[in-house]
């Protein structure tokens, strides 16, 4: 039970079936190819970060994996089952082993926070009322929202909604947890608590965590491995430290937070008119 904070993925038992296997994933919106052949393999117990700027296709990758958007080509194997062409009954079963935290929590507005967390339990488990209630309280306490059980999502702040969404995603003790931008909009302290929680879950339950984010700062400490996506393609994949050492320009930019505001072919209005700063500076 007492794992180190961030064991290298290589330390995991070799030959274990990967939790998630993606091969040649292509997603198109109309004529636009958003994802152009994504490959990735995530091992059990791994904390994997899918990193990319806005418009890089990282959220689309998540949607493609979860079957929320149509896949033009490619294969997705989740917990050993193919997502494409899976019969609806099997898919419903499979999804009970998966938890998803959506960007804004995606709580049901007509249900209280407690009812939101209870929903998957009521739908998929035959439990006595008392057990459901205790499970709900336990999950809410885990994310620090025990006091919010009877509030409606509209009465919560953005960060609280996200944590409630996490409690709901964890309701069935999933084997894999997918998080879409978990720390966006959270204060640094809450974000840190979230990281610690994810780490605990992984260590205690051997849960696999796949995090999609555009900012690595918060999750960097707990991530085992990294998949960098840009322009719909995989730029780099591997353990965080190793990927950083490879000296790939896009990765460096992300870590150094060097902003590229404009492309090199842009110019100033002065250059456009062929004026040079020194040429007429004395003319004033």
């Amino acid at each position: 039970m007492n794992h180190s904070a961030s064991p290298a993925p290589s330390a995991r038992p070799a030959g274990a079936e990967p939790v998630l296997k993606v091969r040649g994933l292509v997603v198109r919106y109309g004529d636009r190819t958003v994802l152009d052949g994504i490959d990735m393999t995530v091992a059990r117990g791994e904390i994997r970060v899918i990193l990319g700027g806005s418009g890089s296709g990282k959220s689309t990758a998540l949607k493609g994996i979860l079957g929320l958007t149509e896949i033009a080509r490619g294969e997705v194997e989740l917990l050993g089952q193919p997502m494409v062409g899976l019969a609806e009954a099997q898919r419903l079963q499979l999804m009970q082993r998966v938890g998803v935290l959506f960007q804004n929590g995606a709580l049901f507005g007509s249900l209280t926070v407690g009812e939101n967390v209870a929903l998957p339990l009521r739908e998929h488990r035959k439990l006595p009322q008392g057990a459901v209630r205790e499970l709900v309280r336990s999950k809410l306490a885990m994310v620090g929202l025990a006091h919010a059980e009877f509030l409606y999502p509209a009465e919560l702040s953005g960060g609280m909604r996200k944590r409630a969404g996490l409690a709901r995603a964890l309701a069935l003790d999933p084997e894999v947890l997918f998080c879409d931008e978990p720390s966006a909009g959270l204060d640094p302290l809450t974000s840190l608590n979230l990281d610690n929680l994810i780490l605990q879950l992984r260590d205690r339950l051997q849960m696999t965590v796949v995090v999609v984010t555009h900012e690595l700062a918060s999750i960097e400490g707990i991530a085992d491995s990294l998949l960098m996506v840009g322009g719909g393609k995989v730029i780099a994949e591997g353990p965080v430290a190793e990927v950083r050492q490879r000296g790939i320009a896009e990765v460096d930019e992300f870590f150094a937070r060097k902003a590229r505001v404009s492309t090199s072919t842009d110019c100033s209005a002065a250059e456009l008119f062929g004026l040079v700063a020194s040429a007429s500076s004395g003319g004033a």
Binding site: S262, T265, D266, C267, S268, A269, F273
Partner: peptide, 23 residues
């Protein structure tokens, strides 16, 4: 071709700050 003449220092500074997108 449009060219400018008699550009003063203050104007030139503004022209330098203004980014023209090539795209």
């Amino acid at each position: 071709v449009l060219q400018l003449a008699g550009v003063s220092g203050a104007v030139l500074q503004k022209l330098n700050e203004f980014r023209v997108s090539s795209e």
